[in-house]
Design a protein around this nucleic acid. Structure first.
Lengths: 343, 343
DNA sequence: CTGAAAGCGCTAACAC
DNA sequence: GTGTTAGCGCTTTCAG
């Protein structure tokens, strides 16, 4: 119930020792005799001593706190990455501050500025859409100027020289086309997606087109449908009605969800002639049986955190790398069974 | 590129002013003349001065950081609450540290201890399942002893005297039964759920049973099916096969998902005779057309944060309240249309 | 093995 | 309007 916390000074007076001795004793320094350490520890417990972290961080200049900035918290990809980051950090004695950019440059700039004031030892960032589309350096210049160790994930930012952990979306798309064509004998494949994450979507489209070329599959203006949600629903419906495609590749979670809604209303006859493949993890695949590539978000989080801690420990400002994470191709059926197809 | 940051002292020497004058000037104190302020600000910009937050927090004793502890980051309910918390906090000049308990007492104790060392001005917690089921005080005693302002959300903890923001799950269940019975003419209703969040599930079952009694609906041993995932799938399948129930109430997201998977395989004939109602927000309702109660997680987050900041500002250690948040009953169809039924 | 002392960078009471 | 000063609680040389 004590509101005022015991300080080192109080403890030292209680014990008849100097502050520095008590400090060393509590941090288990070998300069201090075991007997003294024991006495100090006992008294510390009795008086409910708790180190003032703020003071020690201030003194040592390091907080063991990592700042994480994401575009949103309600997208399962970012939730899982965050989960991986938290797991790795807390296992290594670090804590995590979380801020949200809402995909806006100004909010991102604001939170990065406020995180760059000494409170964090390093930053993990997935940039706002606006920052990337406009190639703005407004938000990133602050932490960069301050020389704060930094790792990016999820969305490539060519303007920033630092480690970046990204999905290998080009390969992911390619693999899904391969699955649809070779595995499911689809010969007319359409890719659908929203405009929400256009930077990554472009990479996915590249992989998709490469695959179409590679397998000698037809490619028209309608082979790639990228629209905003409402328009996409309309376009998909039309395409399905026309019945020209036998394979559909969903480039993001949202388009998969929209597609599911549309297909649910249709007859088994129609459904039997359409194969679906999508990006996404098993938490999301609750409707259509389909093939999917798990983006390994949790793993990305852990790797990102690991990379950052390494950078913090060994401050070398070169040899930055961009790591592309492969996806796991899985087959998901409605009984919840999961089968790893490739790896 | 400067790695060493400019300090107030350096700035003051550069300007030929005292440290305190510079400090006051930068915080726009009215003690300082406008002319001096302008000079100071200019020089600060030129030399890229950035306040050392750690030092000022240490000095003032307040960090404007709130610690948030949740059982998991990958559950959409907690993601949305977190999103609401972040929104409110950042709009009010606060930052957020996030830690995960993984529903374990020891992890919760660990993170709460490390958050209670002066780094945060207040705590927002949704307790670990284990803490609540075992009625353990191991994790909460540390912040309570330290007198850190604290608000709980999502899971009632009767052991802790502080503000608690909870869902009104009893009423939620009642309303869904009312919807199924009065609106959809169901007369044999079964409630299904997992064991993941047993504390809240019990409250939901209470509301469910009250409603059955209130509306004079039949109640048997099989009216409530609470099992672990695999068993639940089996039980649901049996119940549907028997065809005794015309209404199904899903008590959590997971059971809704499982049910969706099971129903998808069935004939339209069977489906037409079953009405589904569930707890959950629109992000989750992507399969079955159904009625649902949105738990307003984002709103809960904002209210929780608001309550905490109020407590921090006016430190009164009494009049703690428990607020029950009502849900919004909505109707969801497969076109993504949402209709507010009540509220 | 223990203690004295400096000081991290800043704020705020108080003096001028 | 500006400067002086004390000190937040801790770590860390350096002396003894």
């Amino acid at each position: 119930m004590t509101n005022k916390r015991t300080t080192l000074r109080e403890l030292s007076q209680l014990l008849g020792l100097s502050i520095s001795t008590v400090s060393k004793a509590l941090s288990d320094s070998k300069e201090i005799s075991e007997k003294t350490k024991e006495r100090v520890r006992e008294t510390a417990v009795i008086y409910n001593y708790r180190q003032n972290k703020l003071a020690s961080c201030f003194r040592t200049g390091s907080t063991k706190v990592i700042g994480v900035v994401v575009p949103t918290l309600t997208d399962i990809f970012f939730s899982e990455v965050l989960s991986g980051i938290e797991r790795y950090l807390s296992a290594n004695g670090y804590a995590m501050m979380v801020a949200v950019s809402d995909d806006s440059i100004s909010k991102e700039a604001k939170v990065l500025k406020s995180l760059s004031n000494g409170f964090v030892d390093g930053l993990i960032i997935s940039n706002a859409q606006e920052t990337l589309v406009k190639a703005s350096n407004k938000s990133m210049s602050v932490p960069i100027n301050d020389g704060i160790p930094m790792v990016l994930f999820g969305r490539k930012n060519p303007m920033v020289k630092c480690d970046q952990i990204l999905n290998d979306f080009s390969t992911v798309s390619f693999q899904l086309v391969e699955y649809l064509h070779r595995g499911q004998k689809c010969n007319n494949i359409v890719a659908i997606g929203t405009e929400d994450d256009i930077i990554n979507t472009r990479v996915k489209i590249d992989g998709f087109k490469q695959a179409l070329n590679f397998f000698g599959l037809p490619q028209t203006l309608n082979s790639v449908l990228i629209y905003q949600k409402a328009d996409l629903i309309r376009k998909i419906s039309i395409v399905i009605e026309e019945g020209k495609f036998d394979g559909i590749l969903c480039l993001d979670y949202e388009s998969y969800n929209l597609l599911s809604g549309i297909l649910t209303g249709l007859s088994a006859e129609v459904l039997d002639n359409i194969q679906v493949a999508t990006l996404g993890n098993t938490n999301l695949l609750k409707r259509l049986p389909c093939a999917s590539i798990d983006l390994q978000a949790e793993k990305i989080g852990q790797l990102t955190a690991k990379t950052l801690l390494k950078r913090i420990k060994a401050k070398r400002y070169k040899d930055y790398f961009t790591k592309l994470i492969e996806g796991n191709l899985i087959n998901y059926d409605l009984n919840g069974n999961i089968e790893l197809i490739l790896c």
